[in-house]
């Protein structure tokens, strides 16, 4: 009576076929990623050498290396984090642990969620208007870093807020009941347990600051600078910008140079992402509740 009818078998068969088809499609998805990486490695590998990493560009950027660009990227990322991480974490702590809920807070959260998705070129406009022109920082490392910091601020806030909210409210209540102040509760209970999530957000900010080009295009990064910057009011080079420059603006660059630059940039961004993957999996293992 309950034998598999033709119809049932057809349905089960279709389920398998569809799974398989979608599986194939997803595998196909992996293809472009791998092709891109393979092309970059194939083209860029010949140029990659210690000398390439450690020497400045020469002969109108058609020879030499990318050292100033690497250094510049580190400057920009470091300085922008110095602003976006403390401000973002403190802002998120204020918004989740101190601010009284209400219309205003809802509005601020809405603004943060939306600002996280504002195009980076709009941040570039803001950076030019606010830092370069209004604050008279000129095109400088400082202006570019601040622009990157503002771009990353909503991301750091959102990631921090999410990990703060993931710490159960009952921990806070228990802590208050034991006579701990709000600040003590935040410092001893909430922050230590939210730390892995916050770090994941920070790492994401690192990879974004290193990879973005538009926000630094007009705020402090130069096409070409033979010497390293002396202070934050100097301009600097950056990997992402250098890749753009030697791809579109300079004639006679050997084919392997931009590919090698792209590889270095991707390696930097991916190592930041790898840190975040490790952090997340360790967090899952060490979760204490």
């Amino acid at each position: 009576m309950f034998e598999a009818t033709e119809k049932t078998r057809g349905r089960v068969g279709r389920s398998h076929v569809m799974s398989l088809a979608l599986g194939l499609l997803t595998v196909l998805l992996a293809a472009p990623t791998l092709i891109v990486l393979a092309v970059l490695v194939y083209r860029g590998a010949p140029a990659l050498s210690l000398d390439f990493l450690l020497s400045p560009p020469r002969a109108g950027m058609t020879a030499g290396g990318i050292f100033p660009a690497i250094v510049g990227t580190f400057y920009l990322v470091g300085l922008s984090l110095l602003v976006s991480v403390p401000l973002g974490v403190m802002g998120a702590v204020y918004l989740t642990e101190y601010a009284r809920p209400g219309r205003l807070l809802d509005f601020v959260h809405l603004a943060i969620v939306n600002l996280a998705g504002v195009p980076s070129i709009v941040h570039a406009l803001f950076g030019v208007g606010a830092f370069v022109v209004f604050m008279r920082l000129g095109t400088s490392i400082l202006a570019a870093s601040l622009t990157l910091a503002v771009m990353n601020l909503p991301i750091v806030i959102a990631a921090t807020r999410e990990s703060l909210l993931a710490v159960p409210y009952s921990f806070r209540q228990a802590s208050w009941a034991l006579g701990a102040s709000r600040a003590q509760t935040v410092w001893h209970i909430v922050l230590p347990n939210a730390l892995p999530g916050i770090l994941t957000g920070v790492v994401f900010a690192v990879s974004r600051a290193a990879g973005e080009t538009a926000p630094i295009l007009f705020t402090g990064v130069a096409f070409y600078l033979p010497s390293l910057p002396n202070n934050v009011f100097d301009q600097c080079m950056a990997l992402s910008m250098h890749l753009f420059t030697i791809t579109t603006q300079v004639v006679g660059v050997p084919e392997s140079y931009p590919a090698a630059t792209a590889l270095v940039l991707i390696a930097l961004v991916l190592s930041a992402n790898a840190v975040s993957v490790v952090l997340r999996s360790r967090h899952r293992k060490n979760r204490r509740w």
Partner: peptide
């Protein structure tokens, strides 16, 4: 502790100001 709380309040304030600054500057 006071300092910590002050920092947090200032940080929160600065973050909100910077973020609303984007809107303001682009429109301005």
């Amino acid at each position: 502790e006071r300092l910590f709380e002050l920092g947090i309040r200032l940080g929160g304030f600065a973050a909100v100001v910077l973020l609303s600054g984007i809107m303001l500057f682009v429109v301005g």
